[in-house]
Amino acid sequence: MSRHLAQRLGQALLVLLAAFTVAFVLLQALPGDAVLIKFLGSEMGLTAEQIAELRIAYGADAPVWQQYLHTLGNFLSGDFGTSIRAGVPVASLLAENLPATLLLAALAFGTASLLAVALAVLSQLGFAWARAFARSMPSFFVAVPVFWLGIMLIQVFSFQLGLVSVIAPEPWEELILPVLTLAVPISAPLAQVLIRNMDQVFGEPFVAVARAKGATHAWVLWRHVARNALPPTLTMAGVLFGELLGGAVVTETVFGLAGLGGMTQQAVANQDVAVLQAIVVLSAAAFVTISLAVDLLLPLFDPRLANRPAGAA
């Protein structure tokens, strides 16, 4: 097991380094010098010499590969650079904005999981019309733009029904609609994978054997199908992290919440590449960690995976 772990860890680090490189190439290695963009604007009235000094101060005059190594070194030591727009370290910006986004994402993911499980169970156990409904909902959920859904929820629940206050809401109240908005599109692929796998497992010969033992449909669902359908769903959940984060950014924008979303928006608008680089690398790191965790969790659900790499060694 430990050799497998080391191998997967190495792979994860490699992907992370590659993600850093891709982000660096896209954001920093090509022209479109952030320092120039910021200070060449006439309103500050800086001279060419002053700009040159600033570029040296920001390290923008060095050859690209030196910048790359420099930035990489900084990242490894926990220094994510300085936000050119805000003039503060990116790390402190992150510390300020990350917790809110994480809370939103976690709540939304929990809601999405509940929604997905509810749809999946309904798709197998309900009346015919309920099953059809549960099966058609995910495609519908996928098709709805997150930002539009958020706006529509505000329209219905706040403006029309007045159920959720948008003016001076309680902290928990403030999160209801954003969580719902974000949960809907995340729940769709989860439910789809869950339903598809359940259908597939229901067709397996061992289910016929369980039925032949006298098991009822519900017994088969809980004792056999659920556990076999779980591992692929877990994998899917890991893959959805990227969607979750992207969705959170959009949702925060729609609801005007503070968090990574606003930070990203500002960074893109101002070409504040250091901020964006940090966000990209950080989310890639989170993604890699999550898929690693999923990988290590899977053998708990499927004993066939447990002794896969160990062999007889």
Partner: peptide, 19 residues
Amino acid sequence: VDTLLAIPSLLLSLSVIIL
């Protein structure tokens, strides 16, 4: 491919747009 999939798609497309 793993690397591209590791970066949330919205952030990846924003990075390309910055470029």
